[in-house]
Computed example of a mutant assay.
Amino acid sequence: MRFHTRKWVKPEDLNPNGTLFGGKLLAWIDEELALYSIIQLENQRIVTKHMSEINFRSSARQGDIIEIGIDVVKFGTTSITLKSEVRNMMTRETIITINETVMVNLDENGKPKAHGKTKIEFVKDRL
C-alpha cells in the first residue's frame, strides 16, 4: 500500500472525547481517494459511489500525525475501486481500513463515462 498523505490532528479535528472525530477522518479519506482517482482517470468529474464497511480500530489524539494509504483493487469500465488504510504515525496503530471504495468517472452531464484505464499510471510516466 502506498501512503500518500499525512494529516496533523488539530484541536478542531477532535470530538468531545478528545479523539479524532470519525466524520473528519472520513472526509479526509474521501478527499484523498477523489484526488487519487482524478489523477488516475484524468478527469475532474469523479464521485464516490460506495464505501464498504467502516470499522474504527483505534484513534488519534491532538498532535498525532496520521497517514492515508491507497491501493487500487480494480478498474471497472466507468469506475475505479480502491482500498484505503489510515494509520497513526505516533502509535503505529491502524485506525481504519476500508476494503472497497468505488469512485465513478462522469461525463460533462454527470453520467457515468468509460475511462479506458486498466492499470495504475504514475505521473512521471506521463511526462
Rank of each mutant, 00 (worst) to 15 (best):
residue 65 I to N: 06
residue 54 I to H: 08
residue 62 Q to G: 04
residue 45 R to Y: 11
residue 69 G to K: 02
residue 55 N to M: 02
residue 63 G to N: 02
residue 57 R to F: 00
residue 41 L to T: 05
residue 54 I to G: 07
residue 62 Q to P: 00
residue 68 I to A: 01
residue 54 I to R: 05
residue 41 L to G: 06
residue 57 R to I: 06
residue 49 K to A: 15
residue 46 I to Y: 12
residue 43 N to L: 10
residue 60 A to M: 01
residue 41 L to A: 06
residue 67 E to C: 09
residue 53 E to W: 01
residue 46 I to G: 07
residue 47 V to N: 06
residue 44 Q to W: 11
residue 67 E to M: 09
residue 58 S to P: 14
residue 44 Q to K: 15
residue 70 I to S: 10
residue 68 I to H: 06
residue 41 L to Q: 07
residue 60 A to P: 07
residue 67 E to W: 02
residue 53 E to Y: 08
residue 65 I to G: 01
residue 52 S to R: 04
residue 44 Q to Y: 12
residue 66 I to H: 05
residue 53 E to P: 03
residue 42 E to H: 14
residue 42 E to N: 15
residue 57 R to D: 01
residue 53 E to S: 14
residue 66 I to F: 06
residue 48 T to W: 09
residue 65 I to S: 08
residue 55 N to W: 00
residue 70 I to M: 09
residue 66 I to E: 09
residue 45 R to L: 15
residue 42 E to M: 13
residue 63 G to F: 01
residue 43 N to Q: 11
residue 61 R to N: 12
residue 56 F to R: 04
residue 66 I to C: 06
residue 50 H to C: 03
residue 64 D to N: 13
residue 60 A to W: 05
residue 41 L to P: 11
residue 66 I to A: 09
residue 67 E to F: 00
residue 58 S to Q: 04
residue 64 D to S: 01
residue 47 V to I: 15
residue 45 R to W: 11
residue 58 S to N: 10
residue 66 I to P: 10
residue 57 R to P: 02
residue 44 Q to L: 13
residue 45 R to N: 15
residue 69 G to T: 07
residue 69 G to F: 08
residue 44 Q to D: 14
residue 51 M to S: 11
residue 64 D to Y: 02
residue 56 F to A: 00
residue 54 I to Q: 06
residue 64 D to K: 02
residue 61 R to G: 04
residue 58 S to I: 09
residue 43 N to G: 09
residue 61 R to H: 14
residue 69 G to R: 02
residue 60 A to N: 02
residue 54 I to D: 08
residue 57 R to Q: 14
residue 59 S to R: 01
residue 53 E to V: 10
residue 51 M to F: 14
residue 60 A to G: 03
residue 65 I to A: 12
residue 42 E to I: 08
residue 44 Q to C: 09
residue 57 R to G: 02
residue 51 M to C: 13
residue 63 G to Q: 01
residue 53 E to M: 10
residue 48 T to R: 11
residue 50 H to T: 14
residue 67 E to A: 03
residue 43 N to C: 13
residue 44 Q to F: 13
residue 63 G to E: 03
residue 43 N to V: 08
residue 42 E to W: 07
residue 43 N to M: 10
residue 61 R to D: 01
residue 42 E to V: 09
residue 48 T to P: 03
residue 68 I to G: 05
residue 47 V to Q: 04
residue 69 G to Y: 09
residue 62 Q to M: 13
residue 49 K to G: 11
residue 42 E to Q: 15
residue 61 R to W: 02
residue 52 S to Y: 05
residue 58 S to L: 10
residue 67 E to L: 00
residue 69 G to W: 09
residue 70 I to E: 10
residue 67 E to N: 13
residue 52 S to W: 07
residue 62 Q to D: 02
residue 52 S to E: 13
